[in-house]
């Protein structure tokens, strides 16, 4: 059992998730980071060392969620901060999109919120303190050609955020989304150069964001100082979308 507040960050082996895990440790949380593979989970455990742990979790699988949450509760205590970060892309234009490309993205990026958040809410309700922070995307608001599946899931994440915030506010649990724009990660490194250039022309700050810049926003929402913010989506995108 940890005497610190336990934070759970899904998809923490790289990119934005890893930066969030590191930042929350800095802020004094005990952080459990998850990855889909044993190797990924072991690497997280090593990186977080004494202030955290790595666990295998497939957010797309109900059984995996149940088993992993149970073991986290028993080993470290119930998480009171949940960062739903794990996500995938399977981009394709609609006319070519396959059923599994649609379903995998909805299942991993949206259905996972139902499973993992539900599993963590009991502990937060008991603690009368909780923070659920969902990593959305600017694409959920703006849309993006070739990402109808991803945009649908991320738009869903923001609706989920608003509804759950109203439901659990009375228990001092806040629920928010952070919507990154284009951040330098493996996910955006995979984009063709021409597409990156045209993207940059639409970003007033003229650069991609860094994972740490998303992590700061998440950490603020998790902090006591962010405690009066709930049901909202915080856009962190260099100005490419300004509501």
């Amino acid at each position: 059992m940890s005497d610190k507040k336990v934070a759970l960050v899904t998809g923490a082996s790289r990119g934005i998730g890893r930066a969030i895990a590191n930042k929350l440790i800095e802020d004094g949380f005990f952080v459990v980071g998850t990855a889909t593979s044993e190797g990924g989970a072991a690497a997280i455990g090593e990186a977080l060392s004494a202030n955290g742990a790595g666990k295998v979790l497939n957010v797309a699988d109900r059984q995996s969620v149940e088993t992993t949450l149970k073991s986290i509760n028993e080993e470290f205590g119930a998480p009171v901060v949940l960062v739903n970060n794990a996500g995938i892309t399977r981009d394709n234009i609609m006319l070519r999109m396959k059923d599994d490309e649609w379903e995998d993205v909805i299942n991993t990026n949206l259905n996972s919120l139902y499973r993992v958040s539900k599993g963590c809410l009991k502990g937060m309700t008991k603690a009368r303190w909780g923070r659920i922070i969902n990593i959305s995307s600017v694409v959920g608001t703006m849309g993006n050609a070739g990402q109808a599946n991803y945009a649908a899931a991320k738009g869903g994440v923001e609706g989920f955020t608003r509804a759950l915030a109203r439901e659990v506010g009375s228990r001092n649990i806040t629920v928010n989304s952070v919507a990154p724009g284009f951040i330098q990660t493996d996910m955006t490194d995979a984009l063709p150069d021409a597409q990156k250039e045209s993207l940059l022309s639409g970003i007033p700050l003229g650069r991609l964001g860094q994972p740490e810049e998303i992590a700061s926003a998440v950490a603020w929402l998790a902090s006591d100082g962010g405690g009066y913010v709930t049901g909202t989506t915080l856009h962190v995108n260099g100005g490419m979308f300004t509501g």
């Binding site: 009991k122 309700t125 008991k126 439901e167 659990v168 009375s170 228990r171």
Partner: peptide, 9 residues
Amino acid sequence: SLDTVELVM
């Protein structure tokens, strides 16, 4: 409805 869930807990 949330109270009843907490009561059961």
